[in-house]
Design a protein around this nucleic acid. Structure first.
Ligand SMILES: [Mn+2]
Ligand SMILES: [Mn+2]
Ligand SMILES: [Mn+2]
Ligand SMILES: [Mn+2]
Lengths: 216, 216
DNA sequence: AATAAAATTTAGATTAGTCTAAATTTATTA
DNA sequence: TAATAAATTTAGACTAATCTAAATTTTATT
């Protein structure tokens, strides 16, 4: 069907589209760790296949078929991550690279049965929503901890940075998915935040607060 | 590490090595659905990497490192097949193509945890032995049903032909792994065999008898 | 609006894996 | 053992995906 490289480009375009109408060549090059000239070549190929709308110098958007493929890859990625954490007991910071490979296993029948086997989970280990088998994906909008005030509280539901280092840091602080937090104080000097958890209090930098997502 | 194509060549060389000391270019071309000239190119590359012993015109054998890689791929293939049948309820004739993709997922930690998750199975859904995490593989030698005489009996433990068509045929006849059979008669004319099962009697061609493996 | 800077595309190469057709080596057989 | 057939390798070409360096287009700044 589509090559591994094509799938990765479509997925990246999808992710970048969430923050900008048109996705630029350089954005893709940065995300895919490749060169802008390589991106241009691939964009032409994807445009030929009518998976993206491409106007030279103007960036790209996904066509409906392109978006469908992208969402299907993301569905596979997140279901495999869920499997690795829930069934094989990996930690949430260990699964991303494996899922990057597993998301390209082609069978949809396989992924639908895996979905059933796990009880149709709604969120992956990082709080990201898992698209259903029809490609519907819940867009529950979260806000960063940094956006709330003193004495406001919320429940941790996601992260903006998915790097292993950041996830390990959160784990160590007890800041994991589902935990309830309350802003106890905001330090004037560097706007770092003091958070009250169930059993303890932790202080996090503004940088961390920007990358930790909650619902109210 | 190694590319997907390299892994497939090593695996094929391993399988063919079970029936012949040296594996020939044409044997590989047939098994891999490719051309002899493509095989020659790849054999040179694998020889450069010291994964095979290659003498032009004389065929190849695996080196110890090459064999280790091959067995690891086979381990992954068979564990994923077991997973697909035992956990996701696929039939034994449906899993091979999916496992052909899954065997290339690189993480060994993943496969070791999968192994544990499933209780360290010894055989895959087709009766083939699953190598352990150290690469040890049980070579229990089976004989084809065609090799036994009238009134002798055995237990079905494997197949020589892994094609979906053959497996579906066996399934329909009730000739599945673990079933006990007894040779009731051998027809003179075409040497087809009448087999007694638990609850019924089936007649199979010589061709089928050659591809169905048992222990006594 | 002209110029400088940034972003993007084009041109030309490279590598992995494959192919067809031709050449070479090995095996068979008369 | 010489001719013939079969197996294998070599030569030259192609596609996918990538790269560097140069050219072009767009955007920002005087
Ligand atoms: Mn991930
Ligand atoms: Mn995730
Ligand atoms: Mn198989
Ligand atoms: Mn099998």
């Amino acid at each position: 069907m589509n090559t591994l490289a094509e799938e990765n480009y479509l997925k990246s375009i999808y992710h970048l589209s969430l923050n900008a109408e048109n996705v630029s060549t350089n954005q893709l090059a940065a995300l895919l760790n490749t060169k802008a000239s390589s991106v241009t070549d691939m964009l032409k190929k994807l445009a030929d296949k009518e998976l993206i709308n491409y106007t030279p110098y103007q960036g790209v958007t996904l066509t409906p078929p392109g978006e469908k493929i992208a969402i299907n890859i993301i569905r596979k990625h997140r279901l495999w991550e869920f499997f690795l954490v829930e069934k094989l007991n990996f930690k949430w910071d260990e699964v991303h690279e494996m899922a990057e490979e597993m998301e390209h296993i082609s069978s949809n029948e396989l992924i639908d049965r895996l979905d059933k086997f796990m009880g149709y989970p709604k969120y992956d280990p990082h709080g990201d929503p898992i698209p259903d088998c029809d490609g519907k994906i819940k867009v529950h909008d979260l806000k960063p901890v940094s956006a709330i005030e003193i004495n406001e509280s919320g429940i941790i539901c996601g992260v903006r940075d998915h790097s292993a280092g950041f996830l390990q840091y959160l784990e160590k602080q007890g800041l994991t998915i589902g935990k309830k937090i309350k802003v106890e104080d905001i330090i004037e000097f560097d706007r770092s935040m003091v958070l009250q958890l169930e059993t303890k209090t932790v202080q996090i930098s503004r940088e961390v607060a920007n990358n930790l997502l909650i619902t109210l």
